[in-house]
Simulated scan of single mutants.
Amino acid sequence: MNTIVSQRTDHALGTNYQIEIQKVYKSFSKGESSVNVLQNINLSIEKGEFISLLGPSGCGKSTLLKLIGGLLDQSNGQLMIDSESVKGPNKKIGFMFQKAVLLPWRTVEGNLILPVEVAKGDIHKAKNRIGELLELVGLKGYEKYYPKELSGGMQQRISLARTLMNNPDILLLDEPFGALDEFTREALNFSLMDIAEQSGKTVILVTHNISEAVLMSDRVIVMGINPGHILEDLKIDIAKPRTDQVLATKKYADYVIHIRELLGVGRV
């Protein structure tokens, strides 16, 4: 299919990429032996790209995300952000997980300020940003609400706003909407795309959902298992901004079918 374009994943380090990963391996100790989780990961990401890490459970998507975020150390290889080796958590990075993990005794305002308090940042400046962030995620006016007064989708919007509070350059999202119903999830997908477009931030999304990955991404990194490795770095050549009309196009369907075939999903 002529709509399918693969990217190279073996770029040399030291070029103008925001995130550079070269020959990265990750293993975990298990008793006296070790388990290989990631093998020979090569990936370069430009500033402002929206990347999805897609693959079956056990392919190391979340592990790779944690390596980029400095929450884990690679066993071998090089991983750099803005030409500096990743050594622990980085202020340039905002991390969002599947569960909102909002503090129930704090209002929305209190939850949004939390990362600034932890970082011992400027609380006054942070409070001035609350209205802007809530407007960005479509919840202006909810400052004084408590998490129990919000739906699951609204809580995830607050979690996204909290991730943006310290204005990170890079957003790492580990299946942030995976537990939501299909309608809420799709609405939040479009909200996230709008935020990414407006802010110019680099976004890396972990997902199991092929349709979601194709709809949202500039590139889809398709991963295989045993151990986790990159099957294909797939460029999504669909114009932005994207709307739900994209879902009815042949080009979109071709990408979905191609990835399903690559992963051996069902009969196509």
Rank of each mutant, 00 (worst) to 15 (best):
Ile4Ala: 00
Val5Asn: 02
Gln7Ser: 15
Asp10Ala: 12
His11Cys: 06
Ala12Arg: 09
Thr15Lys: 12
Tyr17Arg: 05
Tyr25Gln: 06
Ser33Gly: 15
Ser33His: 14
Asn36Met: 11
Val37Arg: 05
Gln39Ile: 03
Ile41Phe: 10
Ser44Ile: 09
Ile45Cys: 13
Glu46Trp: 01
Glu46His: 12
Lys47Glu: 11
Gly48Ser: 06
Phe50Tyr: 03
Ile51Ala: 08
Ser57Met: 12
Gly60Leu: 11
Lys66Phe: 04
Lys66Leu: 02
Leu71Arg: 01
Gln74Asn: 14
Gln78Ser: 08
Leu79Gly: 07
Leu79Arg: 04
Asp82Ser: 13
Ser85Ala: 10
Val86Gln: 01
Lys92Ile: 04
Gly94His: 06
Val101Asp: 15
Ile113Asp: 01
Val116Glu: 11
Val116Ala: 08
Asp122Cys: 04
His124Gly: 12
Lys125Glu: 12
Arg129Ala: 11
Glu135Met: 12
Lys140Cys: 07
Lys140Trp: 13
Gly141Lys: 11
Tyr142Met: 11
Lys148Thr: 11
Lys148His: 13
Ser151Glu: 00
Gln155Asp: 12
Thr163Gln: 07
Met165Gly: 09
Leu171Asn: 04
Phe177Gln: 08
Phe177Thr: 13
Gly178Ile: 07
Leu180Ile: 08
Asp181Asn: 05
Asp181Pro: 04
Arg185Ala: 15
Ala187Gly: 12
Glu197Gly: 01
Thr207Gly: 08
Ile210Gln: 07
Glu212Asn: 15
Ser217Pro: 02
Ile225Glu: 11
Asn226Phe: 03
Asn226Cys: 12
His229Gln: 14
Glu232Ile: 06
Asp233Ala: 15
Ile238Asn: 00
Thr243Val: 03
Asp244Glu: 10
Tyr252Val: 00
Ile257Asp: 01
Ile259Tyr: 02
Gly264Cys: 03
Gly264Val: 01
